[in-house]
Write a protein that binds this DNA or RNA. Structure first.
Lengths: 250, 250
DNA sequence: GCGCCAAACTGGTCCTACCAATCTGGTGGG
DNA sequence: CCCACCAGATTGGTAGGACCAGTTTGGCGC
């Protein structure tokens, strides 16, 4: 992994930075799953932090199933790439660790799968309250465009409103994690201001279809809608802009 | 190697218990999203723990997006039911907090959605290594039945092997979380030893279909396969056995 | 060469002491 | 009477010390 890399964009909290530092340290040491990490006291000293702070970071890593603490023995890496939590990825994204090329592929595929199913479900179950929420999200998006404000968050808000309209809150949680995971990418995507209007128009179409409970049409619109982002993401993978970190990571 | 379903049985470490205690405290106080939790020092005193332990617990809750810490201000509840992490549910399950009736409904629906899609994908992409893994998982399941050992973990292992055969590791992560979430239920389901054989037979069929890349057939088998568990789960909701906690929770 | 025990090490926990920012309440000036 | 302002209490954030109870290890004695 590209060592060092001074503060990437968001200077995540110092606490979060500690988590990142520990992950980085494990990566640099080429630790395999099952390997033991340095002892808490040593981590604290090496990272220039108190043992207390280190323990908090480790507790988080443990909750995300990246690490296992064995009392009186040590802290051990887990096989994260197989069964690590989805939120472990979200955390890494928060820390500025870029997604692997493969992870982006997978995320794109999974997002499409779930959004299509979600759209169909939303058509079937949307309540008046859902329609209100969707309309509100849409309106806020329009407002943002008119005011020249950042659109990315409003795009996410609309899609999450669709997910919420499925009535399945666990589904909503998963989709929300996807959006947290791709926040930075979305921001960059909509940095090109011309994209917001197109997205917004498709959202409007989608809302109509959902209101009419026309699942096939809604799914078709969503499919078309996703196409834009997907091709952007996959294109980015093909030739990363200079000045950006490569999307390679173990 | 069978994917980690390393059921610590008593997952309720004292540390984890602290997390549970804090959640319980918030629930009992009927705290709404946005409300402030007691200060760390007060939590420590009220729960009979050190501030240190409390802070670790809070750090985990924050990572799971159940809570937000505002420096020099306080700890605030977040709107967990909308955007809380999926792993927050896994954590709660580990702590022994039963799923809501609605959550079980949603989990059943979501699991079906994803397993069906996953089966189709697995048919399309399975590699020889995947087939080997699937066969191994199947064989271990048979072994467990012959030896009269608990089958639940082997059931999960096979399904996770299918998920892994999709080649989409993020998909695998999500499905894995589902399985962690329903571990206790699965254990109870297979406590009736007669169910293992039927499950095993369907797994074998499924493996055949995946080997033949016959997606429609594999999906059909999976659908039938899921039916059993689903009706069991939903039936449980209708009339909870006495002696068990009711599945109602805020 | 083997077995055993003590010392070192590990995570788990609590405590104290600060810091810096926030929030509060009261007071003094207008 | 009202408002601006300041001091003190409160809060999360962090460092560091001190134990405990197991585990691991290494060396000593047999």
């Amino acid at each position: 992994m590209p060592v060092a890399e001074a503060a990437p964009v968001v200077a995540a909290d110092e606490r979060a930075a500690l988590i990142g530092a520990i992950l980085r340290l494990a990566a640099e040491a080429r630790l395999q799953p099952g390997a033991r990490l340095p002892a808490e006291r040593e981590l604290a000293e090496r990272l220039g932090a108190g043992r207390n702070a280190v323990r908090e970071a480790i507790a988080v890593l443990e909750a995300l199933r990246l690490v296992e603490r064995r009392p009186n023995s040590g802290i051990y890496l887990r096989a994260a790439e197989r069964v690590g939590s989805l939120d472990a990825l979200v955390l890494q994204a928060d820390l500025g660790v870029p997604l692997t090329r493969a992870e982006v592929d997978e995320l794109v595929e999974l997002r499409r799968m779930m959004e299509l199913q979600g759209t169909a479900l939303a058509c079937q179950r949307r309540t008046p309250a859902d329609l209100t929420r969707l309309a509100a999200a849409l309106a806020e998006g329009s407002g943002a465009i008119d005011q020249g404000e950042a659109y990315a968050a409003h795009d996410a808000a609309f899609h999450l409103a669709v997910a919420e309209a499925t009535g399945n809150r666990i589904f909503l949680r998963v989709v929300n994690s996807f959006y947290l995971l791709s926040r930075e990418r979305r921001r960059r995507y909509f940095a090109d201001g011309s994209r917001a209007a197109g997205s917004q128009a498709q959202h409007a179409e989608m809302l109509d279809a959902i209101r009419d409970q026309d699942a096939p049409r809604a799914a078709e619109i969503m499919s078309r809608h996703l196409q834009g982002v997907e091709s952007y993401w996959l294109e980015l993978l093909r030739r990363p802009k200079r000045g950006e970190r490569k999307d390679t990571e173990a």
